[in-house]
Computed example of a mutant assay.
Amino acid sequence: MARNAPDPSTTSSSTEVVEAELLAVARNWAEAIVANDADRIAAFVTQDWVLVSDAGISPGQEFLDLVASGALTHSAMGVVGPTRVRVLGATAVLTARVTNTAHYRGQQFEADEWTTDVFVRRNGRWACELTHYTAARPHS
């Protein structure tokens, strides 16, 4: 083995540890969303967090403001199937199919979406920089 080459067993193990850490962050973030706690949700995202959907790019602060005002609440959120995690140094990408029940200004919405979250590691913690979601097609 070359002198500077990483030990494959160590690299694999450390990757698994980081992936497990990211999955825990994602679970805790989902719990914060269902708790409808804007401050707790904000702890999982960067100041520049944006959401991307078929409507375009929205500042994450708009989402946080809606939650803080009570205009947007979530009563359920779950992952359908496995989450794909890719770690690229201080950046990570998580992709999963997510279902949720939201209430916007009193009206209930059920969502089944593919989401991709881009996380960055800053000051020893992972925070989401970008969330992209699109409606999932029904299984045929």
Rank of each mutant, 00 (worst) to 15 (best):
S9F: 14
N100Y: 15
A135V: 09
D65C: 01
L130K: 11
W29R: 07
A71V: 11
L88Q: 13
V25S: 13
W29G: 06
A38K: 00
R105F: 09
G124S: 14
N4M: 10
A90S: 15
D7Y: 09
A38D: 02
G60Y: 01
V79Q: 00
T91A: 09
V17T: 14
P138L: 15
V18W: 13
A111T: 14
V93G: 09
H132C: 05
G60H: 03
V85K: 05
G78H: 10
L23S: 04
A92E: 11
L51T: 09
S13W: 11
A38V: 03
R40T: 04
V25H: 06
D117F: 08
Q108N: 08
I41V: 03
A20Y: 12
E62Q: 08
Q108G: 10
N28S: 05
V17F: 14
L51H: 05
D48L: 06
T46G: 00
A55S: 10
S53W: 02
P6A: 15
W29E: 05
R84C: 10
P6H: 12
M77L: 06
A30D: 06
L51I: 07
S53I: 03
L51C: 03
V93C: 08
Q108R: 11
Q108S: 13
D7V: 07
V17N: 15
D7M: 07
W29T: 07
T15Q: 13
V79H: 04
G81D: 06
Y104G: 08
D54Y: 10
E16Q: 15
D54A: 09
M1G: 15
A42Q: 03
H132N: 06
Q107K: 11
R40Q: 04
D37E: 01
L88E: 12
P6C: 14
V98S: 00
G70H: 02
A24H: 13
D37R: 00
A90R: 12
A90D: 15
V67I: 00
T15H: 15
Q61K: 06
A136T: 09
H103D: 11
V18I: 14
S12M: 15
D39V: 01
A76Q: 03
N4W: 09
T83Q: 06
E129K: 09
R27K: 14
A92G: 11
L130D: 01
S69D: 02
G60E: 01
V67R: 01
W114S: 05
H74S: 06
H132V: 10
H74M: 03
S13A: 14
V18K: 13
E31Y: 10
A92N: 08
L23E: 07
D39I: 04
E16D: 14
D117H: 09
V85L: 05
A102P: 01
S12E: 15
V79E: 02
